[in-house]
């Protein structure tokens, strides 16, 4: 894969115990290697690994296909998981606003354009990576700082009620798959 990373590459290393590595194939057929501790940050992937019965012996021979995530996003996700694999478990964030400090390394990792960020959140949501979700959403939430309602409308592309109604009407008027 020839994606140019904009952030420091995190080497996959398991120094604290014997390395167990897994292979993941993205929707565009890029192959990634990820350590056991890192892959555990994704509830979806870890459930899949458990259900498939992958072990240290057969893991690398059985790559896991992830149809919903492309190579670019998967690379970011693997970097993130490797970086945070030994982090202590944090309590789930509730309604307490901005209660954590976003580390500079992660802020840099997530300094991508809005379209990429949107796709990354969809991937993160699918792979169920709580910490990355917290960080991505924090970056998006921070866009609202010191903004007026009309500025927010532009930043978040919020349609007016009339635009939403028109969109809904055109969706209901358009013929369905069989029509």
């Amino acid at each position: 894969m020839s994606v140019e990373p904009e952030v420091p590459i995190v080497q996959v290393e398991e120094v604290r115990e014997n390395p167990v590595l897994y292979k993941i194939i993205s929707s565009d057929n890029h192959v990634f290697t990820i350590s056991e501790h890192a892959v555990k940050l994704s509830k979806t992937l870890w459930d899949l690994i458990t259900n498939l019965g992958l072990t240290a012996e057969n893991a690398l021979d059985n790559p896991i296909p992830v149809e919903n995530v492309n190579g670019k996003n998967m690379e970011t996700i693997v970097q993130f998981c490797e970086r945070h694999k030994y982090d202590e478990e944090e309590p789930e964030y509730t309604n307490y606003i901005r209660e954590f400090v976003l580390p500079e390394w992660d802020r840099q990792l997530l300094s991508i354009d809005n379209e990429e960020l949107f796709q990354l959140i969809l991937a993160t949501n699918y792979l169920d990576i709580q910490k990355l979700m917290d960080y991505c959403c924090r970056v998006i939430g921070d866009m609202a700082k010191d903004k007026t309602p009309e500025e927010l409308r532009i930043i978040y592309g919020i349609p007016t009620d009339a635009e939403d109604d028109a969109l809904e009407r055109s969706a209901s008027d358009s013929p369905g798959p069989s029509g």
């Binding site: 354009d113 809005n114 960020l117 949107f118 949501n125 930043i155 592309g157 919020i158």
Partner: peptide, 8 residues
Amino acid sequence: NPFPLLDL
């Protein structure tokens, strides 16, 4: 481009 928040 705007970030399409409500499409998430």
